[in-house]
Amino acid sequence: MNIFRLAGDMTHLASVLVLLLKIHTIKSCAGVSLKTQELYALVFATRYLDIFTDFISVYNTVMKLIFLGSSFSIVWYIRRHKIVRRSYDKEQDTFRHYFLVLPCLLLALLIHEKFTVKELLWTFSIYLEAVAILPQLVLLQRTRNIDNLTGQYVFLLGAYRSLYILNWIYRYFTERHFVHWITWIAGLVQTLLYADFFYYYFESWKNNVKLQLPA
């Protein structure tokens, strides 16, 4: 475990906890895309199947349980909680996320490391995670005003992916550990998706103005 990997996991943990705390405390999910949250729950459900078969470390298992629990809790809050669900912007959160799931499923069937159910689902989760943020980015552009917690959430997610790329570079040079090119490319695509958000987030922070994304 290197510092980039640990920092990446902690940033990822912070992003989901920021979101869960926001929804739990102010009982509102304004600006949050349910579609993106459902996609993340699916990403974790299909990636962490090995939690019962392969034991890697206590850290690994605990983090997987936290990510599974928090992502499904967020979906439950937005779908089922009698107060939170009222602030869900159904009309604006219209990204057809099934159009993301199917291509990722097909791509996983075409390009994978091993043709086993567990490995196919794992590969599917890698592809899906790369595009899962799209409904949220679209919603942010539509609603234009970004309340700072949602902005921080997206920022932390982007930071977690950037740190993972540094982690892969570090592991390549130190452990001669080769991240499979599937992981590398999907991770790179995902990080690039955040690039323009980062630009506007940094600009707003520098000019000390409210974050506005161009339509």
Binding site: D50, I56, F67, E113
Partner: peptide
């Protein structure tokens, strides 16, 4: 599973 698991990252 047998041997080193395929994926050790989250």
């Amino acid at each position: 599973g047998l041997g080193q698991p395929m994926h050790d990252e989250l």
